[in-house]
Design a protein around this nucleic acid. Sequence first.
DNA 1: TTTACTAATGCAACATAATCGCGTTAATAT
DNA 2: ATATTAACGCGATTATGTTGCATTAGTAAA
Lengths: 128, 128
Amino acid sequence: MKRRNTPAKEAVLELLVKSQKALSQDAIESQIEIAVNRATIYRVLNSFCEDGIAHKIVAEDGKQYFSICKKCKHPEEKLIYHYHFRCLSCGTIECLKTPVQYTVPSGYQVEHANCLLTGTCKDCNTNS
Amino acid sequence: MKRRNTPAKEAVLELLVKSQKALSQDAIESQIEIAVNRATIYRVLNSFCEDGIAHKIVAEDGKQYFSICKKCKHPEEKLIYHYHFRCLSCGTIECLKTPVQYTVPSGYQVEHANCLLTGTCKDCNTNS
DNA sequence: TTTACTAATGCAACATAATCGCGTTAATAT
DNA sequence: ATATTAACGCGATTATGTTGCATTAGTAAA
């Protein structure tokens, strides 16, 4: 199943790259230049994840957030998991550079890590 | 608002303690001895969280899981965040002893950490 | 034990997130 | 220009979690 380039994909990708943050479907739908159907946005985002272009974060609100992050890629093309930070004040979700480090009991095999810190970000702390 | 003891609370608590795992509302509803309404289960679970008895984990499936974990309590009564592990094969979510360690850029204030690793657990790895 | 107060419950309605089926549209290669 | 089929929009559907409200039942005081 070869991918095709479409206006929807380009617009979503551009928005994600431009915003530098993790965005939810509804944020994308409201910020995107062109009109794109909800289901399509999800399909586009999931295809990005499948292709390793974007990654998905599930926040404690149960919602999915997607982001493009070039720093995620390790030299040997392996994804390095890093912490994400969700600001309770402004809602922003950003990728921190802090890598996720963990050890698991022997016999356990880790395939994915979803690590989210919540609190107040720098901007919201200094502005209050 | 003082808490009252009720059959629903006792049953949910007993189940959580017995199972030693993080359970979702629907798992609790199906495993619990007595019939308890869905909304009540959520209210009970949230009250446990407020009282510091249980903690809530949001998995990458967007669902909330609740668990009792005595090891969570630090000597000075402060909650220590630890990793959780979700097995993609058997669905079990368990608390790992691995503490969550992170550093955040200056100006950031962390209030909560939700860290979940997914993969295959020991049992599922050895049985395959 | 009886009474009063109100936390807790069940039920139904509601809100939201995400997925899916299906007929149609349009990107790509020939 | 044509054929193929990935991608799309739309509507329906599923699932999770919350909320309002009338009723029930803990708990403490009389």
